[in-house]
């Protein structure tokens, strides 16, 4: 994988982990959503000052975006195990059972609500 594609993928992953949309991050960076999308696709090169700001917003060290994919393999496996255990918890089962009868649009609303809650936690709405 080309270097800037790797950096872009890491950027997308870190952004999604915080439940932040491209639009929100682009606004905070002062760039267009199209530019941010190009960063994430590796079609536009991120300069040091940009990545420095991104690392602060997304709360990751600069090295996170530059590490080889192999270096995170163990972390990825751990992430998957954590997710599996999380989904087995009782309240998650309840949420899934309740959501089962919802229409796709209602499910979308639930997802949007969760993302809104997360963005409040990350201070994005401040």
């Amino acid at each position: 994988m080309k270097s800037y594609e790797l950096i872009g993928q890491k950027l997308q992953k870190a952004r999604e982990e915080l439940g932040m949309s491209q639009k929100d991050l682009a606004r905070r960076l002062g760039c267009s959503q199209a530019s941010l999308s190009n960063y994430e696709l590796g079609k536009r090169r991120l300069y040091l000052s940009d990545l420095h700001r991104i690392s602060k917003i997304l709360n990751k060290p600069i090295t996170y975006f530059l590490e080889s994919p192999g270096e995170n393999a163990e972390e990825n496996t751990r992430d998957k195990d954590d997710l599996h255990n999380f989904l087995k918890q009782q309240f998650m089962r309840e949420i899934m059972l309740e959501a089962k009868d919802l229409t796709p649009m209602q499910r979308r609303s639930v997802l949007d609500y969760i993302k809104w809650q997360k963005s409040r936690l990350s201070g994005d709405m401040a």
Partner: peptide
């Protein structure tokens, strides 16, 4: 120069 780990970005931006 720069934060630790920033050498690659420094190099590409300088050369660009």
């Amino acid at each position: 120069v720069g934060p630790s780990g920033s050498g690659y970005l420094l190099f590409t931006q300088t050369i660009d």
